[in-house]
Design a protein around this nucleic acid. Structure first.
Lengths: 208, 208
DNA sequence: TTTTTTCCGTTGCAATTGCAACTATTTTTG
DNA sequence: CAAAAATAGTTGCAATTGCAACGGAAAAAA
């Protein structure tokens, strides 16, 4: 993101009358995308997942949100038959913002809203990048490839071959859309073949 | 799309000096997303696929484009390690447009460019919807589910239980990221179990 | 600090899938 | 039109994966 998101949020909280803050504890549903709410949310603190449950009861994690991430139905409108939820993964604080039309400026002199209109494209394009990463992961044909692609992605992001998985392993399986036990089996093999070192959620990628 | 894309393209071709048209025959690469080109393309006629080849030589079809679809690296920037290509699937005509900064208006009185800035959000949000559909498909755990989800999607789009697959079956397998022969086997089972009727590329979904 | 719940780690087994290797059919091209 | 290329359709077999069902460790709640 090219602009200062921290300052952006501060301006937002101080200047916009259409916002409110709310706390959520672990497991609570922050919002759902069943009908249009003309609202979006900024995660001020904590973490949350965008999830879907399909007819077979499988849970799919579409995206993982952490501090300062923005989510709202503008990014997901008219997608699927299934219902989408954002679930809090821990004690989280969320800033809600309601709008009539996201692309038109507030009548009032709301500094935040002008900034929003200005930077909306950036926000959206960041979403697109996230979605494309997810497609790349899901399009891999084996669990091994999915894991290694994801690990490589995390390593690149951190500029380090050691990193911490931002999910529980159970959630990682849902994110990669594979069976958890099968994923654990594959991780075990990756360890045995000395392709990775794994200590809990900390992974080190070894050069082959 | 809320605005008249046909009129939009017409204005574009007639008024903007930064455009040129080019024809492509089947199999030709229209553009690649290896480096930034500050350019995007409108498919005036024909069809094309956005594809990626991974290290194992698997081809993955990310998106399928038909008449009037817009594509360009603004939608895919900074995604992956792999190279992305747009390949023409048949005799196609493409309108190229180069820009310095997609969000700033032309210095000249280019009607097209103002329209573009105005409608860019819509275009991008349509992209997001496509990407989400693809994620939904890829996140299904079995070939059967992927096929049925895709078929349901096509049926919904056409308001009809009968529809034509806009891919060759070989390409459909790449789009769903599954082995072609395994997909064919699954289709055969779906026919035998009288869940679908299949005549070439024409599918009818039967109510269970 | 117990108790409860969630998460991790494992394994046998059956089902699904990918791979390879064909033939048949359709489409394209010289 | 004939030859070549692409696509469709099959099948056996091996590898991978999902499912189910555990026990143990860790984290959260009481």
């Amino acid at each position: 993101m090219d602009f200062d998101i921290e300052q952006f949020i501060l301006d937002f909280k101080n200047n916009c009358t259409r916002t409110y803050e709310k706390n959520f504890s672990k497991g609570e549903v922050i919002t759902s995308y069943i009908q249009k709410r003309h609202q979006f949310c900024i995660l001020l603190d904590g973490s949350a997942d965008l999830v879907r449950y399909d007819r077979n009861g499988n849970r799919i994690i579409i995206e993982h949100f952490s501090k300062n991430d923005i989510f709202g139905e503008v990014f997901y409108s008219v997608i699927t038959n299934n219902e989408l939820f954002v679930e809090s993964k821990q004690q989280s604080t969320v800033l809600f913002y309601s709008y009539d039309n996201i692309h038109s400026k507030c009548k009032t002199t709301c500094k935040f809203h002008s900034q929003l209109v200005e930077h909306f494209n950036e926000l959206v394009i960041n979403k697109i990048i996230d979605l494309n990463i997810r497609i790349e992961l899901l399009s891999k044909r084996s669990i091994r490839e999915k894991l290694l692609t994801y690990f490589n992605f995390l390593a690149t992001k951190k500029f380090n071959n050691s990193f911490t998985i931002p999910f529980t392993l159970t959630d990682l399986a849902d994110y990669l859309s594979v069976d958890r036990s099968a994923m654990m089996r594959e991780m075990k093999l990756l360890k045995e073949e000395e392709i990775i070192i794994k200590t809990g959620n900390r992974i080190t990628l070894l050069q082959h």
